[in-house]
């Protein structure tokens, strides 16, 4: 289990329930979490202060999760880890996600415990 002190996570989801749930769960796991309600806010927050990991819901009005991910991968902090959240759909959605550069993908409805495991796993890999 990686040390979670001072590890910053940005969470973006327009659904307040999921946003608050993920923020709560990851905070309980010891991470410092900043939650925003849409893609534009996520992109602004990312540029202002790049976190260690970003959790993005794919389906958001305005800038979608894919859009924010695309922007991140084209920015100077392109190595930041990204986990995508999406409603249950066919595999091609997952393919697009990975093609655009996601590190992992969680499908809704999701198990909160599994989400934390995935986050831990990505951070262990990317932070060495």
């Amino acid at each position: 289990m990686p040390a979670t002190d001072g590890v910053r996570i940005l969470v973006a989801d327009d659904d307040a329930d999921i946003r608050d749930l993920v923020e709560f769960k990851l905070s309980q796991a010891g991470y410092t979490v900043h939650a925003v309600p849409d893609g534009m806010a996520a992109w602004d927050a990312f540029r202002a202060d790049p976190p260690d990991l970003v959790v993005l819901d794919v389906m958001m009005p305005g800038l979608s999760g894919f859009d924010v991910l695309r922007n991140i991968r084209e920015s100077e902090h392109r190595e930041v880890a990204v986990l995508l959240l999406s409603a249950k759909s066919r595999d091609s959605d997952v393919d697009t996600g990975f093609a655009v550069g996601a590190d992992d993908y969680v499908i809704k409805p999701f198990s909160p415990r599994e989400l934390v495991h995935r986050v831990n796993g990505i951070l262990a890999r990317t932070r060495g």
Binding site: D17, I18, L21, P109, S111, P112, R113, E114
Partner: peptide
């Protein structure tokens, strides 16, 4: 009801 559509497993 809202949350049931979003989580699964033990919590659900």
């Amino acid at each position: 009801a809202d949350f049931l559509g979003k989580v699964r497993g033990g919590p659900a």
